[in-house]
Nucleic acid binder design. Structure first.
Lengths: 197, 197
DNA sequence: ACCTGAACACCGTTCAAGT
DNA sequence: ACCTGAACACCGTTCAAGT
């Protein structure tokens, strides 16, 4: 796991292969198949290892506050290792730590009034938001100014507006989260009004 | 492009290589490099080709209605070709048709009252929602009942609830969209209240 | 203008064989 | 229990050479 994270940070997911991991450990690629059934299995283990770095926030009475600090910590974890989003996306979250995180978040959503039927949808909605936000964030941050200039040159002035790159990612991340929570609350109160009638 | 889509539908993105595309066209892989600078360039062209299938809804006075039918059509387009999400995710949307779609949607968001500074964030938020929803949807649909049963066996009854698979994807897709729109509207009216004071 | 053969430097995975 | 050599069937990409 440590070797894999080291490779990720040095060369990214493109550089993470059975052979490069083995090399880092001074063994041969074939040996890894004694420990893992294949690459997906290895990805699952790396994802689990990364999620151990995730600092679970202290329990809170307000589920919304709890979730906001959870997702902030989740993003911080994702930003701390290069291409971690790709690793998480390509593995099934059925390992202990990842289940623990899903459990804690799901309970908070239920506490917020999310219905059982929509729990998976809501949980995925938020999880996918963070993953894709960070993926975009990293894509933007890794685009050199020359490349950005080159891309802008190809667009008409009007379109430049629609593909502009945000500079304050922390703020924009929070904005997106607030949209999601505001939406959840709005739909819940609409639901309540309907049943009261 | 037709050959690529054919391969995608038959063997998925794993089966889409320079060699398999070339074989389908009765040429050699090296020849493709006369037409495209590399695999990413080719992905961009396939993505553009897929987006030509996207049926842009008729203009509407209500930007929300317009956007909802846009995203429904977007999802339909994504569902019609296997692994299309991966192709779109791994290419830059700077081609004519894709820019046209982004332009139309961005204008509708502005009409809805989305501020210039958050336009990229909002546009990405919705786009990423659809992409990741469809990606999850396909993952679920392609998991055989045996596999699902196997996964469920590994979880305690409580956790099974948190990883349950929705059955009515159309409904759940619309629910997520409604959360996003309700959130956007709620934040806008909060903003208005603040400036009125 | 468009295609090819051959090569380079990689992949993931398997499996008999070793200690 | 853990590792290896060797092989299999693939990749993306380059480039001199062909028509």
């Amino acid at each position: 796991m440590e070797a894999s994270v080291k490779i990720l940070n040095c060369k990214g997911i493109e550089g993470l292969s059975m052979r490069t991991i083995a090399k880092e450990l001074n063994i041969k690629a074939a040996s890894l198949y004694w420990h893992f059934s294949g690459k997906l299995d290895l990805y699952g283990a790396i994802a689990e290892y990364l999620c151990l770095r995730y600092e679970m926030p202290a329990e809170s009475d307000d589920p919304k506050d709890y979730l906001i600090s959870s997702y902030k910590a989740y993003r911080a974890m994702l930003l701390s290792t290069r291409d971690s989003v790709s690793v998480l996306e390509n593995s099934i979250p059925n390992t202990p730590r990842r289940m623990e995180i899903i459990r804690a978040m799901s309970k908070a959503f239920l506490k917020m009034g999310v219905k059982q039927e929509t729990l998976t949808t809501v949980s995925n909605l938020f999880n996918n938001y963070v993953l894709s936000f960070v993926a975009d964030e990293c894509r933007f941050k890794n685009t050199t100014p020359d490349k950005i200039h080159e891309l802008e040159q190809m667009l008409c002035p009007e379109d430049r507006l629609f593909l502009s790159i945000p500079s304050n990612f922390d703020e924009q991340f929070l904005y997106g989260l607030q949209v999601l929570f505001a939406g959840l609350e709005a739909l819940r109160s609409r639901e309540q009004n309907r049943t009261e009638q």
